Amino acid sequence: MKLILTQEVGGLGGPGEVVEVKDGYGRNYLVPRGFAIRWTKGGEKQVASIRKARDVREIRDLGYAKEVKGQLESLKVKLPARSGESGRLFGSITVTDIVDAVKKSGGPDIDKRRIEVGNPIKTLGSHQVSIRLHPELSATLSVEVVSA
């Protein structure tokens, strides 16, 4: 099955790429979740607009990615959250919370889909978050969750 990706899918490709996948994977997973649309000749025109939108968000070259990595790794990000006496949060910290905290701390704009949180952040303290800046480069951001 031939599909056009609308979002980045790990191990498959990025937005605007035309990929060939097994029928079941495309029909049951990618298309219903909005990660891809069926390839048609008319859909090929949408590829240009998807790629243009991706180019605006994406970090173009490795040099700029290294610069952003330096900014992120030197940044001190504090996230206030409500917690109980034992230090467990009421809920968890989301990637949207992290993006907002980076902006408030004076950091660069980052796409929330590029943030990878290993285990959900549900306790107070310091946590490490990985951010994919470029296919060859990732940054590690230290997030300090404090009681609000």
Rank of each mutant, 00 (worst) to 15 (best):
K2A: 05
K2E: 15
L3G: 08
L3V: 09
L3C: 08
I4P: 08
I4R: 09
L5G: 09
L5A: 10
T6E: 15
Q7L: 14
E8A: 14
L12Y: 05
L12V: 15
G13W: 03
G14Q: 14
G14C: 11
G16L: 09
V19Q: 14
E20L: 10
Y25P: 07
Y25K: 07
G26P: 10
G26Q: 12
L30I: 06
V31R: 05
R33P: 02
F35T: 03
A36N: 13
I37P: 01
I37R: 10
I37Q: 11
I37Y: 00
R38Q: 08
W39N: 07
W39M: 07
G42Y: 01
E44A: 14
Q46K: 13
Q46P: 01
A48P: 00
R51N: 09
K52V: 06
K52R: 13
R54F: 05
R54C: 03
D55G: 15
D55A: 15
R60Q: 15
R60A: 14
D61I: 02
D61M: 04
Y64M: 08
Y64A: 10
A65F: 00
A65D: 04
K69I: 01
G70M: 01
L75Y: 03
V77E: 10
V77P: 07
V77G: 08
V77F: 03
R82G: 08
R82S: 11
R82K: 15
S83I: 00
G87L: 04
R88H: 13
R88I: 00
F90H: 10
G91C: 05
I93F: 03
T96W: 05
D100Y: 02
A101E: 12
A101L: 09
K103N: 13
K103M: 14
K104I: 07
K104L: 12
K104W: 03
S105T: 08
S105C: 08
S105M: 06
G106W: 08
G106Q: 12
P108F: 06
P108E: 06
P108C: 09
I110D: 09
I110T: 09
R113V: 00
V117P: 04
V117A: 13
G118E: 14
N119D: 15
P120N: 11
I121G: 04
K122F: 00
T123K: 07
L124R: 01
S126K: 15
H127Y: 04
Q128L: 06
Q128M: 02
V129Q: 03
I131Q: 03
H134Q: 06
H134V: 01
H134A: 03
E136F: 00
E136R: 10
L137P: 00
L137M: 01
A139E: 05
T140E: 10
L141G: 03
S142G: 05
V143R: 04
V146N: 06
V146I: 13
S147N: 14
A148S: 14
